[in-house]
Design a protein around this nucleic acid. Structure first.
Length: 476
RNA sequence: GGUGGCGUGGCCGAGUGGCUCAGGCAACGGCCUGCAAAGCCGUCCACGCGGGUUCGAUUCCCGCCGCCACCUCCA
């Protein structure tokens, strides 16, 4: 096995720890998925790229990986102060569409963008709205344990029944109370108490609501992840990931309710959180209006995989500066790597058996060591860059390494076409004619005419590359 | 107010108590070219400020300055 023992940073322990699977040979991962009331932006996608990278590294390391990520299509309130509208319902009211139209549309946007970024399909994508009974069952367990109380607007988890509540995120509950920044809008006993089940207002029906032992209503936001993760990954699983913003509230609450209901500690062995993308002075988030999506990149003429490369250029636990130009730079780097990879691949007909282990193995080791060390993408990419053009390597060496690395890079190198090669532009008779005219002009040393034709095509966005076999054209 | 983090060459961004101290993008020079473009080769060698520890600190400690995030729906 070329992948050394994998070490990952665990938010709970605040340390890089060895990955030790609950079940030998297997790895289970849960990631908080999208709330489908609006577009998933590039910041959201960073939170999806982390588990994609993680599962690829674990898989390369020989683990049988199960990856589950949910779709939140109900119950995510606008405010955690337990007031305000459900986000999905608010979107439905605003657009006049049905709940199904809203959630279906944005779920598809999310899934499509995942694919465009070269991510592997999840093994399971459970929907919150389809798991209400499981959520109710978990709440009932907590109720039987005496950890809940009911007030006018819902069923709440009483954090005082779980002394370890503050440990996960290293919170200071007294301080939380003292600052008064958590509004006490309801009759909650403690500001940190959170809703498990929300009761529908007596006088107004919701678009999505269910009967429950406590009355008609809908599940609180946090309980869904606990219920679905447990259902599909078991009462004790390996890794839970999400954006760093979830540490304080969402994941703290997930841990509290899960460890209590399941009587299992730890419920999850390793918690991994990606830092945010930094878009100028404000982070990118739906509520701030910076909605940059994969489609934004495509509209800019950028290959979505450039964003994948961009993601790997910074460590996931580091805030990453984001600008379109930086992604474009990443795209340039990616294009050069693909160019070399394809050249090597085609030179050996995809057969890397002629590789010289003495040359390749140190590089292979460097690549996998970087990733096994808490998914150090930048270091891995440095190896990729040198492999791509190291003149000491044969084509077989190069392809042997890059084909191997692509398990994690996900650039599709096995099927990629050379980005520097001609495209089908010259199939157009007019363009083919112009190229022929230019070749003739050059033969006559009529440089003015040759350049005129080149400028003409350039104005149409076509780039001419002169090769020993004649001119080639491609769109820029 | 509380908590966590960051400040590295034009831009991004790894990393390390000393060893030619990543990598990418850009720029510049060269090769190639009629000139270009694309590609290749090369150059560019930095660690916010002030103290301290040390034979030696960008890397450890203290202080300061600046920036960001979370604590509220947020990836």
């Amino acid at each position: 096995m070329t992948v050394p023992p994998i070490h990952l940073y665990d938010t709970r322990r605040r340390a890089v720890v060895p990955f030790e699977p609950v079940v030998p040979g297997k790895a289970s991962i849960y990631t908080c998925g999208p709330t489908v009331y609006g577009p998933q932006h590039l910041g959201n996608m960073r939170s999806q790229l982390l588990p994609d990278l993680l599962r690829r590294v674990l898989r390369a390391g020989g683990y049988d990986v199960t990856f589950v990520t949910n779709v939140t299509d109900v119950g995510h309130l606008v405010s955690d102060a337990d007031e305000g509208d459900d986000k999905v319902e608010a979107a439905a009211a605003e657009t006049g569409q049905s709940v199904e139209e809203i959630t279906g549309h944005w779920t598809e946007q999310w899934a499509g963008d995942r694919r465009r970024l070269g991510m592997l399909e999840p093994d399971r994508v459970p929907y919150a709205s389809k798991h209400v009974p499981e959520q109710i069952a978990m709440i009932q367990t907590l109720e039987a344990q005496g950890r809940t109380y009911v007030i006018d607007d819902g069923v709440y988890f009483d954090v005082s029944t779980y002394p370890e509540y503050a440990d996960f995120a290293h919170l200071n509950l007294d301080d939380l109370e003292a600052t008064g920044r958590v509004e006490n809008v309801s009759d909650k006993r403690h500001p940190a108490d959170f809703a498990l089940w929300k009761l529908s207002p007596p006088d107004s029906a919701r678009l999505q609501e269910w009967d429950s032992p406590w009355g008609r209503g809908f599940p609180g936001w946090h309980i869904e992840c606990s219920a679905m993760a447990t259902k599909y990954l078991g009462r004790h699983f390996d890794i839970h990931t999400g954006g760093i913003d979830h540490v304080r509230v969402h994941h703290t609450n997930e841990v509290a309710q899960s460890e209590c209901a399941l009587e299992q500690h730890p419920w999850v062995n390793i918690w991994m959180h990606n830092e945010f993308l930094d878009v100028g002075t404000e982070k990118m988030s739906k509520s701030k209006g910076h909605v940059l999506t994969v489609q934004t990149l495509v509209d800019e003429g950028i290959d979505p995989l450039a964003f994948r490369y961009f993601f790997l250029q910074a460590h996931y636990r580091q805030q990453q500066n984001f600008t379109i130009d930086l992604v474009r730079s990443a795209g340039t780097a990616l294009r050069r790597i693909v160019h070399h990879a394809v050249a090597a691949r085609d030179a050996v007909g995809g057969d890397a058996s002629g590789a010289d282990a003495a040359r390749t193995e140190p590089l292979r080791a460097a690549f996998w060591e970087a990733l096994a060390d808490d998914l150090n993408g930048p270091r891995a990419l440095a190896v990729v860059a040198s492999v791509a053009r190291d003149p000491e390597l044969s084509d077989a060496d190069r392809w042997s390494l890059l084909a191997d690395f692509d398990q994690v890079l996900g650039f599709g190198l096995a099927d990629a076409t050379d980005p520097e090669a001609a495209d089908d532009s010259a199939d157009d008779p007019r363009i083919a004619g112009l190229l022929a005219d230019r070749t003739a002009a050059r033969a006559d040393k009529d440089w003015a005419e040759a350049d005129r034709i080149r400028d003409l095509l350039a104005a149409e966005g076509l780039e001419i590359v002169d090769t020993p076999d004649g001119p080639q054209a491609r769109r820029r």
